[in-house]
Design a protein around this nucleic acid. Structure first.
Lengths: 209, 209
DNA sequence: CTGCAAACTTGCAGTGACTGCAAAAAAGTC
DNA sequence: GACTTTTTTGCAGTCACTGCAAGTTTGCAG
């Protein structure tokens, strides 16, 4: 019964996973991240506490909705671009594509996460701390594309810059409703691309930049 | 009795603080970070567990030796440079100065921390997660110097890039004994300064870069 | 549809980080 | 030496997280 690629089991697993994720985000946004216990989250999703930890290694991970496939997916994307695309561009496009997908799939969740992040900005950093494994994958992909050894600083810096861009962008996005998250991330990556030695122009009071 | 600027009390506090820090790092390097309990650390430093938590908010903080004065100190340095120094250079120099000082004061600790980080790279990221407050200070200083509003992406990105540079540099430093940490951080910051769109040259097997 | 194996869920008991509180012990002051 | 302010400590409690050993559900073959 897996011609559709997804058995009953798989479907149920996906369901509990997203139920837990949504419960976590919803409750955290509603009454503050650390006023919510895993027990409450599990109850909300109608599973046992132990099951929560079968799906997520930590409360943090559930909040951010850590997707174990995101790393491999992005790495593949990076390598799939035609040869004349620079490593930076490949990485940049890959990140933006991922964000677009994510927002299309769960924009509502990100709106709630925004509230949580506004209360506790450190959560975003902490959540990214656990993705060292994925980052390693991305760094390898970048290294391959750039013709550099894995030990080189550049690939790791580029990937770190990516998550920094994302984190800063979320903060900025949270503060200004009128912006699209993808655009802000793109802008941040551009600053990294152009070099931080170059201070970007800023027109006081003149939003046509 | 505080003409020397430091009373008995202050001296003792400093002593317990560094004793706890050293105990944490030493034990963690010796037998692995999570095979060490706070109870053991406290015992090693001859204080109670409760006292440990009077000095450090978490085990992570003790491992990294989080210095609450580092943020203000660096911010001050950034603002103190003459006016013709660019924001990037001011930040860069400030970071390198801090690292130099730190290594001069506690090089042995950093050598041990290196071992711990090699076992668990995520600890470094997590440790930096709690410094959101300091980062805000630095970002403000950079913003002031760059003539940008605090809400602008640039200052935050520069500061994030700084910690990314530091984290990547430590990793690289841990893997190659022959390098000086300060140099690697400087190199990383230079890559950020020049722009990541530019892939650095790499001479296969020719260390004259 | 039955019986078996693999995957998933659950409860339970335990560890360890971390907190608030109130009392003991120093340290500084006069 | 009494008095105030800090610092240390013990204690009780909460909560995240883990390993283990059932119990339950799903997949599959006969």
């Amino acid at each position: 019964m897996n011609q559709s690629g997804e058995s009953l089991r798989d479907r149920k697993k996906r369901q509990t996973r997203t139920a837990l994720e949504r419960a976590t985000v919803r409750l955290a946004a509603e009454r503050g991240y650390d006023n919510v216990t895993v027990e409450e989250i599990a109850a909300e999703a109608d599973v046992s506490v132990r099951t929560f930890f079968n799906y997520f290694a930590s409360k943090d991970e559930a909040l951010i909705g850590a997707d174990p496939e995101a790393g491999p997916r992005m790495a593949e994307r990076i390598l799939a671009f035609p040869g004349d695309v620079t490593p930076f561009d490949a990485y940049r496009r890959s990140v933006l594509a991922e964000i677009t997908d994510e927002l299309n799939n769960a924009r509502d969740l990100w709106l709630l996460r925004k509230d949580v992040v506004m209360q506790r900005p450190d959560l975003l950093v902490r959540a990214f701390a656990n993705s060292a494994e994925s980052e390693q994958l991305l760094a390898s992909a970048v290294a391959a594309r750039a013709g550099l050894p894995e030990s080189h600083l550049y690939p790791r810096l580029l990937v770190s810059a990516g998550s920094a861009a994302f984190r800063c962008a979320v903060t900025r996005w949270a503060a200004d409703d009128s912006l699209a998250l993808g655009d802000v991330v793109g802008e941040a990556l551009d600053l990294f691309g152009a070099g931080l030695a170059h201070v970007p122009p800023y027109h006081h009071e003149g939003g046509t930049s």
